[in-house]
């Protein structure tokens, strides 16, 4: 079930456009932010709300690289290896992530905590090498800073579990 908060957000986003279907991509991304991926239910719900066939929503999911049909990790590590980052060690950062987490491109750790993706230019070229964890930018990343970040994220997860 989609939350009431999300449903309210859907309504306000759809209202921005003269043509409801304009809202498809934003709605997909907001649904994914809440659910962790785009579920079948979200596809149906969005299609219904904007008045299109579900296949039109699925077409969009296939096109936009940030949208996922399967759950990703709680912390989705997106490491840029495009030209500016490559020149300053982006590939090493990616490999370091892969080694530390024991997963590869587009894989998720068995505990569901981390997933890894090699991504294209994030728009952080002057802070290369750069990566994003979910929507947060991390720039001028080094293997050492990465280790600290991963430890930090693990701690953060622990903290949230205790709170729960």
């Amino acid at each position: 079930m989609l939350s009431d908060r999300l449903k309210a957000k859907f309504d306000s986003v759809i209202a921005r456009y003269p043509l409801k279907r304009s809202a498809i991509v934003p709605l997909l991304l907001f649904a994914q932010d809440e659910i962790g991926y785009v579920s079948d239910e979200a596809v149906e719900e969005i299609a219904r709300r904007v008045g299109v066939n579900p296949i039109e929503v699925i077409e969009d999911i296939g096109y936009y690289s940030m949208l996922h049909r399967q759950p990703v990790g709680k912390f989705h590590l997106q490491v840029c290896t495009n030209i500016s980052c490559m020149l300053r060690g982006g590939e090493k950062i990616f490999e370091h992530c892969a080694k530390e987490l024991g997963i590869e491109h587009k894989q998720t750790t068995p505990d569901g905590l981390f997933s890894l993706e090699e991504v294209e230019c994030l728009g952080a070229c002057c802070g290369a090498p750069a990566m994003q964890v979910n929507y947060d930018f991390y720039e001028n990343v080094t293997p050492e800073k990465l280790d600290a970040l991963l430890a930090d994220l693990r701690k953060k997860d622990q903290g949230s579990r205790i709170k729960d």
């Binding site: 066939n53 579900p54 296949i55 039109e56 699925i58 077409e59 296939g62 096109y63 690289s65």
Partner: peptide, 18 residues
Amino acid sequence: VNAYGIGFRAAHSEIIPN
């Protein structure tokens, strides 16, 4: 009938059913 769409992108694009 609108039964077809396009899945994925670039060289991996494909025709998908509804």
